[in-house]
Write a protein that binds this DNA or RNA. Structure first.
Lengths: 342, 342
DNA sequence: TTTAGCACTCATTTGAATAGAGTGCTAACG
DNA sequence: CGTTAGCACTCTATTCAAATGAGTGCTAAA
């Protein structure tokens, strides 16, 4: 579609613009050395590239800046990723080596590393528990009316909710029920818990316990996953140093969105695994028209999956970010995998 | 110290400035009606007030703005708090009425309300568990080498950590130990757990279990409170709409600090109960010189205590914020208290 | 096909003039 | 003697025109 030379010029322009944030002119491209033509020639090509929709001109007497399409081409034809700096690699090693007890801590730490390495905003999603299974269930009465329900998953995650005890339910009934559940439901995938509860356990409970209805309600409550997937943000203030967000209005629309965790979860939770790049208006959400969002997935012991992402202006260091995300997502999977065996 | 008239004028100036964010001149004060003197008279008083350090002048031909000292006087001599709007009160009622299962949800929700009612940034600290006591302890093995330690407090909070099992420790030894702990330590305040573990339980364990050292290490790990007090932020982007933070540099120093949860915890965790107002440089932290921080404390069932706070520019609607914090902290204590009986 | 040259465009910078808000001081007033 | 009107003065913010300069598009020559 593009000639070799056009491709080189586009590449040079995007590269330059990513560094300077200023419209780049034909002269500066010519002087770079990697495209050995005169400004005039480059100007002609630039006019063509603009007509094709890869470049834009803020005004007649300014240089060119890449359009979304230009960035897209740049990303799709990215040169093989250059290896990261040694010091950065060391950070990854540390992540894997560190004795972090909880998954959340690993994820949080990874987010901090990501933000400080890239100078953009990192958005990480905690592992999706969809694929994990039940390890242990417990009901601990606090007083006459309330109890804590505790669920431990196969990956060692602990979830808890406060539930109300139906009046008149005997302690022994409750204990018996819990024992039954542990016997019957241990190892069952989390997303099948409720179905199993009704299909298999229901009758059993009905046989030996009073207050069937209320008890089932209690258990149903316990198995209702309370929280959404957890969102970890880091480096939000890196957004402030981007010249494209000098305009407080634009800045606010983005930062506002970052406070809406449910929306973020939806935006990051892509079906696909691997690395994904959404440039400008390729993002569904209006607030991200000036941003690019790059995401990668990690896995926890092959069961649960989560997402890590970087949000920055469309004028983003794609090569660096993609490389970093790729390595970090692997490092995370490594740090998390094998930690909890079956 | 200040004459009746000076006091009134200072009050009027602060009031005006809080609303307009512009230096206020003698004419506009005179026209307000509540200080019935000519601009010239007011000018004279203003000059005096400036000499006394209550006012400042950006430049010779501008109006006056309050100094930190001026704000302090204003706050200390604040008129009796006017009651909140009916719609706001309704929000509080809802908070108390809502069936929120977890303490964290109550706190989080309160933060959202606070930020949206005041249009400032709310900073809430989750309850300090210092005063709660142990309800239940459990060790759940995940595989040969790791286990989850689960601690349930008297207020129904659940904490969990992953710990490593010393090789060779038998399951029955572990179970026996856990039973012993529950028998001996239930009801013991959290901050005394470790001391009791060593003073009373140590010998007992030594008597019947092998691997004494390793087992104690495991238990010590379990009782080491992993997380700091949790911090909930809401309405950080409200900072962007304040004209004093039009300057991105200033904005960044503040927002950067908001990302440092440990520092925030330290800044909010005041010894004193009740409402506290820190104006401008009264704040210890450099980043808050242009801000005021107003905090109040809430309690959870009379045991654990937490803090709620509002951060805004020194030019802040003190009356409104103080009133709101006062009511909300009570509402929270009410919503949380009695929920978990002994 | 490439390039040098040149006229042209347009945002940005600069500087001077102007307007306007507010003060401090002095003198008059009750 | 406290209060107020009047006025000169100060300093910022606005406005506008001119100058600057980066960069382009086009044409003609190499």
């Amino acid at each position: 579609m593009l000639s070799e030379r056009q491709s080189m010029i586009l590449n040079a322009i995007v590269d330059d613009y990513i560094r300077s944030a200023e419209p780049v002119g034909s002269r500066s491209i010519s002087k770079r050395g990697d495209v050995a033509f005169s400004p005039a020639t480059i100007r002609n090509e630039m006019a063509d590239l603009e007509e094709l929709g890869f470049l834009e001109q803020p005004h007649t007497s300014a240089g060119r800046i890449p359009s979304n399409r230009g960035y897209r081409y740049y990303v799709d034809h990215l040169a093989p990723l250059k290896p990261l700096k040694a010091e950065d690699l060391k950070l990854f090693k540390q992540l894997a080596a560190e004795k972090l007890s909880a998954v959340e801590e690993v994820v949080q730490h990874a987010g901090t590393i990501l933000a400080s390495m890239t100078n953009y905003t990192s958005i990480l999603l905690g592992p999706e528990m969809f694929n994990t299974s039940l390890r242990h269930f417990q009901l601990l009465p606090l007083n006459e009316t309330t109890a804590v329900a505790i669920i431990v998953t196969s990956t060692g995650e602990v979830e808890n909710r406060t539930v109300s005890i139906p009046p008149g339910l005997s302690v022994s009934d409750m204990e018996q029920t819990v024992n039954l559940l542990n016997a019957k439901l241990a190892g069952v995938p989390m997303h099948k818990l409720k179905a199993r509860l009704y299909s298999e356990i229901g009758q059993e409970i009905q046989r030996h316990a009073e207050h069937y209805e209320e008890l089932m309600k209690l258990l149903d409550d316990s198995f209702t996953s309370g929280k959404d997937q957890k969102v970890f943000l880091s480096g939000t203030t890196n957004m402030l140093i981007q010249p494209e967000f000098r305009d407080i209005g634009k800045l606010k629309t983005v930062l506002d969105l970052l406070e809406e965790t449910p929306t973020l979860t939806r935006l990051l939770n892509s079906e696909q695994k691997g690395i994904q790049v959404k440039i400008g208006s390729e993002n569904v959400h209006q607030a991200f028209v000036n941003c690019s969002l790059i995401t990668a997935t990690y896995s926890l012991d092959g069961e649960a999956f989560g997402t890590i992402g970087i949000l920055g202006p469309t004028r983003m260091e794609y090569a660096k970010v993609i490389g970093t995300l790729d390595l970090l997502s692997r490092a995370m999977s490594r740090a998390l995998g094998g930690r909890y065996g079956a």
